[in-house]
Write a protein that binds this DNA or RNA. Sequence first.
DNA 1: TCTGAGCGTAACCGGTTAGTTACGTAACTG
DNA 2: CAGTTACGTAACTAACCGGTTACGCTCAGA
Lengths: 109, 109
Amino acid sequence: MSGTWEALTDPTRRAIVEHLARDELTAGEVAALFDTARPGTSRHLRVLREAGLVEVQPVGQRRVYRLAPAALDEVEQWCRDVRSFWGQRLDALDTEIARGARARRQEQG
Amino acid sequence: MSGTWEALTDPTRRAIVEHLARDELTAGEVAALFDTARPGTSRHLRVLREAGLVEVQPVGQRRVYRLAPAALDEVEQWCRDVRSFWGQRLDALDTEIARGARARRQEQG
DNA sequence: TCTGAGCGTAACCGGTTAGTTACGTAACTG
DNA sequence: CAGTTACGTAACTAACCGGTTACGCTCAGA
């Protein structure tokens, strides 16, 4: 269920997610959106599936893909955490932590 | 200034960002955090620099790296957009758009 | 049951990339 | 100025990755 970052690494996979955000699509429809061969898209869809970003539902002989936006939490939370720690660091400027780091850098240099 | 996604592709680069979120570090300090050789880290830092995720400030012979969290906007905005379109689609369920897609799928099958 | 459509997987291939060693440059130190 | 430290870059290599073709499976319809 993890690996959201890795799944969204590829621009093509992000484009697939963008399309699925607007409408659910069958595997063939997704493949038709790009000029690559179908097996490549199929693997992209598998990566997105394993990352929990999309869900499949067999309908007859088709496979309908649907977005599962909950998996975006991991990415968004990471960004928030980074910003948060950065904010805390700024608040702590000229405090023991910052001076400690500076001192450490001095004494080792 | 673009390429935030690509820069954050690599787990090592994300880890560098995480460390820099807590404290600014010199290039050598960043390299010491990982067991890889320094040139590799140096290139990672360059990628992050070119993506606008970090900034450098020469201090004597050291290069102090600092986080530039504004570049995270691109990623966070993308996630928000995807969620937004997904929400709109859910609101539009059983409307002309959804029925149209379903109809299109029927007629071609 | 036979045929064709839709989809996934296996195996292979070329380009990218992250890691390494070797080397060059700028700045502090004696 | 000579030596050392900190850092970046160049060139090479091994692994990864995205694309392709070939193939197998499942389901719908005649």
